[in-house]
Amino acid sequence: MTVYPNKKETKELIKEIVSIPSPSGYTKNVIQFVEWHLKELQVKTKHNNKGGLIATLPGERDSEHRMLTAHVDTLGAMVKEVKSNGRLRLDLIGGFKFNAIEGEYCNIHTTEGQVFTGTILMHQTSVHVYKDAGDAKRNQENMEIRIDSKVNNAKDVRGLGIEVGDFVSFDPRVQLTDNGFIKSRHLDDKASVGILLQLIKRLKDENKQLPYTTHFLISNNEEIGYGGNSNITPETVEYLAVDMGAMGDGQSTDEYTVSICVKDASGPYHYDLRQNLTELAKSNEIGYQLDIYPYYNSDASAAIHAGNDIMHGLVGPGIDSSHAYERTHEDSLENTEELLYHYVLSDMVNS
């Protein structure tokens, strides 16, 4: 396999993207970053009404289109209640558990544009005070934000401009290790966004002519179920979501190859498209794994549920500890980009 020598670039780009707060519903800033990046590459883009971004590369054939997606929205939270003790109760955005964010640093984004820092803690954190500090349930009732400001009651908090409905983002704590790992929150799915941006750059640098007009949707509502279910042109035949591969007991996915999903909670992905992706990986000596993700849905499955007549597929880098403090390796990023590169230059399944 001949790998495009951009691994450091890709990791640094992902580091930038994960550092921009963007819980679902609060993605304007990160979309602007992606748009700026694409404009630097002189790629045509447009916004959809939901706030997502669509980039288009023209192809030799415009009668049949492809669409690739990656989502830039992340897990997060919203202020549910300003508590009488001067702390904040949370309402979660996305499918994760409270224990995944216990002890995490966070930002509270007010409607007036101010940002306050805080820490997400159990109310019963102090073992010197609470006998049930270790046993109490990690839930909405017990978890709260301790704001890094002098506040003692709800009035003090509201005096800062913090109110119900303010978004809460989590500190990604991103680190790049010397031996190729990247660990951070929100690699789901900002790792894939970085890969798509680097793929587009590679195609532009090499002045490649795609066989089909290809759209790249940077969706912004995937974590809540409907990011990529619209703005699919009638000409679109193949729709490929680029999203994290899920790792754990019984899974084939690892941190070093590209994961090709055969089935998730929505059902099987298109068999012929999956077979085409597998053959591309084999013929180009790309490390890959086939896998089933039992508790998972993607932008591609959302597109199918919305009634689009498409072949849908799902590939992505293997991500450990999904929806918590995640990790992957540059090998997985490279294998994913390499598969996508050969895919967008290949013939369609039905050609």
Rank of each mutant, 00 (worst) to 15 (best):
V3S: 14
T10Q: 08
K11A: 01
E16M: 03
E16C: 05
P21T: 03
P23S: 08
Y26W: 06
T27H: 01
F33M: 13
E35T: 11
W36Y: 12
H37G: 03
V43M: 11
N48S: 06
N49L: 14
K50A: 14
G51C: 11
I54M: 11
P58Y: 02
E60G: 12
E60Y: 00
R66I: 10
T69I: 09
D73I: 10
A77C: 12
K80Y: 05
E81P: 08
E81V: 15
K83T: 14
G86K: 13
R87Q: 10
R87M: 15
R87K: 15
L88S: 06
R89C: 13
L90C: 11
L90D: 06
D91Q: 14
L92T: 09
G94S: 08
G95H: 07
G95S: 11
F96W: 13
E102H: 03
Y105I: 15
N107W: 07
N107F: 05
T111M: 14
V115G: 08
T117A: 11
T119S: 13
I120N: 02
I120E: 03
I120T: 04
M122R: 14
Q124S: 06
A133F: 15
G134E: 09
K137A: 15
K137V: 14
R138D: 04
E141S: 08
N142W: 01
S149N: 10
S149D: 06
V151R: 11
K155G: 12
V157W: 00
V157P: 07
E163H: 08
G165L: 15
D166C: 15
D166N: 15
V174K: 08
D178N: 11
N179S: 15
I182P: 12
K183H: 10
H186Y: 05
H186R: 10
G194H: 04
I195F: 05
E206D: 02
Y212A: 03
H215A: 13
E223F: 07
E223W: 04
E223L: 10
I224W: 00
Y226E: 01
G228D: 02
N229D: 15
P234A: 11
Y239H: 03
L240N: 02
L240C: 06
L240P: 02
M244D: 01
G245I: 08
A246E: 01
D249M: 10
G250V: 08
S252C: 11
T253L: 13
E255M: 15
T257F: 00
T257D: 01
K263D: 02
S266Y: 04
Y271P: 08
Y271W: 10
N276Q: 14
N276D: 02
T278R: 12
E279S: 06
E279R: 02
L280K: 05
L280A: 01
K282I: 09
N284I: 12
I286G: 01
G287N: 10
Y288I: 12
L290D: 07
L290Y: 05
D291Y: 05
Y295L: 08
Y296Q: 09
S298T: 12
A303C: 11
G307I: 05
N308D: 00
I310K: 03
M311I: 03
H312A: 13
H312V: 05
L314W: 01
G316W: 01
G318V: 00
T328G: 04
S332M: 04
N335F: 04
L339C: 05
Y343T: 00
V344K: 00
V344D: 00
M348A: 00
V349N: 00
V349G: 00
S351E: 05
S351M: 06
